[in-house]
Design a protein around this nucleic acid. Structure first.
Lengths: 354, 354
DNA sequence: TTCCCCCTTGAAATCGTTTTTATCCGCCGC
DNA sequence: GCGGCGGATAAAAACGATTTCAAGGGGGAA
């Protein structure tokens, strides 16, 4: 503050070089109307005195903010501290994707989808950012609808189920749920539970689809009663597992939506004395790589969450450059990381009781 | 974008009310030179047409950005995904602390302390924000030195050990380490390990101090050989626990710096067949409330990390309003959450072998 | 009644850019 | 040789606010 008397402006540069501020501006922005020699001289002088364009001035004139807004969902209730932990990695990825551009990242904390829409409106109407990134997409997502209608550039992590064209990055949840379920079926499990999040979420439906398809493919009845919808908390994972393992015809396989619920499921099964890895199997999505240290280590589908963030940032940059959103769509399949045995090793629950 | 033809500016408001833009500006900012009646009329009209001052315009004129920058540390290496997970809660807290003010939050991802200093410089010299918040304070912290010297408003999560006056929020790590260690000593443990982060971190030293004091208070020798310095990863927690438990005179008590290393320590001890809760005890700091679901559930010192974030935001607001940083300093003690038994229940390792 | 002062409001400058329009100059073609 | 054209740069307006300073009007005092 006291250090720099006044940082150089375009005017300073004008006095130094003798060119007018108009020429300077054009030169620095690479306008073709300026001579190569002039450009070189101006650029050289700019480097010399350490000139950097003021984002404020640019912003006022161009109407752009050079900011990208990210909607970060958090559940601030006690017991939900795990919620949103993957956002550290997502933000890191987005920042990496934005690197090299003049865009900075502003983060807006939202507590639910309604607040998400309100914040999106604020960002658009208040011109708080040039683009928007968000996740937690619902099958019918009002934010996507609004932003499409407003023509505001955005990229989402996840896809809604409406027929709208917009840039997005997504994980193939349908395939992952199918693969996890099929793996458990192949291991001898028949009573497989799906521990799923809020069914309004688009990927929750994808997971149900994949789960269902695995049974259909195997010619087996779909255990509809074992599909549990809840939140993403460890507490829910635990409660759900306990409920499912106590059924008259208990679940022996568990497909969990994330590491948080998987940890809960393990804790619940442990409390009931169920030996996971022998009498039951758990497969989860894996975002922060903790599953390898659980008891037992879990087989997971690993989401390279930081890479997804990087894609989000990169896509938004391209979207801001005017690229067609139809070309900015990507679907990735998570990698299977096999850790614990998913097979029932001859202690299927219905054996021994027969 | 296409929706709002042009959002109302101060000029629009001027045409609507008949007052000049100067009067409008003063009225909206509550200047005492404007009549109450005029103010009321202008405010009413502003509400009517939905006027909101453009941050861009304000920013250019006042030199303020109405942004608060947060330095978010991330380790993007594989295996370190857990690192920084608490930042979801911290950001949520900061946003809550900023609520009601015109300040928004921009997040700058930094990979190490050096990059942190570079980013801080960019923020200050490029006037990218009006204030700064960061954590991971080192005993000798170049960022703190720089910002103090520059006179730039900032608040830190943690304190350095230099004699500088600045606003900060901190956790009493000295006390927490002392209390955890004393609890294990009281439970009969003598070989207690401290699983600690990078010793350049200020709170790492605080923890060593508290750890040491607990032994001194009890009149016991300090087990210097059991103080392990590493990173905050689960992998390190596991490796450290294995090393410590394999010593000729093994550690039986473990004081872990966070939930990530505690999970690692549990995994390591489990691999060695050590029964935690009987033959060994683990006490950790707890930030995302996962410890209750570990096997066994851990006794922790719970950090209300979102509250700390809220304090950070609030303190920065007050600092920006000109408040003396000497009055903006806070130290909180984490709450003990007793879960697993910390006592050795008569199976001290040296009994039975005698 | 007249002058002055204070109280309220308005005009204009300013912040740092970009962009449109104007100006200057040399050169080509007729 | 002259008109016009085009290439290079400069001048000026604009973005939306704040702030300084000037102006206008009304009321009180002489």
């Amino acid at each position: 503050m006291a250090d720099h008397p006044t940082r150089p402006t375009i005017k300073t540069l004008s006095e130094v070089t003798g060119f007018s501020i108009a020429t300077i501006s054009k030169a620095l922005n690479g306008s073709p109307v300026v001579t190569q020699a002039t450009k070189a001289a101006i650029r050289q002088a700019a480097g010399q005195i350490g000139y950097a364009a003021s984002l404020r001035g640019m912003s006022l004139r161009t109407g752009r903010t050079y900011q990208v807004a990210v909607l970060m969902p958090v559940a601030s209730a006690s017991g939900f501290e795990w919620d949103g932990v993957e956002y550290a990695q997502i933000l890191s990825g987005i920042a990496a994707g934005l690197e090299g551009s003049p865009y900075r990242m502003s983060v807006h904390v939202v507590r639910d989808a309604a607040e998400g829409l309100a914040t999106a409106r604020q960002v658009v109407e208040g011109h708080l950012a040039d683009g928007l990134i968000f996740s937690g997409i619902q099958a019918q997502d009002p934010r996507v609808e609004y932003l499409c209608a407003a023509g505001f550039p955005f990229v989402t992590l996840g896809r809604c189920r409406q027929n709208l064209t917009y840039a997005h990055v997504d994980v193939d949840s349908d395939w992952a749920a199918w693969a996890a379920t099929a793996r458990l079926i192949a291991g001898g499990h028949r009573r497989i539970a799906l521990i799923n999040p809020d069914p309004r979420l688009s990927y929750a439906l994808d997971r149900i689809d994949g789960f269902t398809r695995a049974f259909v493919d195997a010619g087996l009845p779909v255990p509809q009663d074992l599909i549990m919808a809840g939140d993403l908390s460890t507490r829910f994972g635990k409660q759900a597992a306990i409920t499912l393992a106590r059924l008259p015809d208990p679940a022996t396989g568990f497909v969990c939506v994330n590491e948080s619920t998987a940890l809960g499921a393990l804790a619940g099964l442990r409390d009931l004395g169920v030996d996971v890895g022998r009498a039951a199997s758990v497969i989860a999505y894996d975002d922060i790589n903790a599953s390898a240290y659980f008891a037992p280590p879990l087989t997971t589908f690993y989401l390279p969450i930081e890479d997804l963030g990087r894609q989000l940032g990169g896509f938004l940059l391209r979207r801001l450059a005017g690229e067609d959103p139809a070309t900015l769509q990507q679907l990735t399949r998570p990698d299977l990381v096999a850790r614990q045995s998913d097979r029932l090793e001859r202690v299927l629950p219905w054996e021994g009781t027969t």
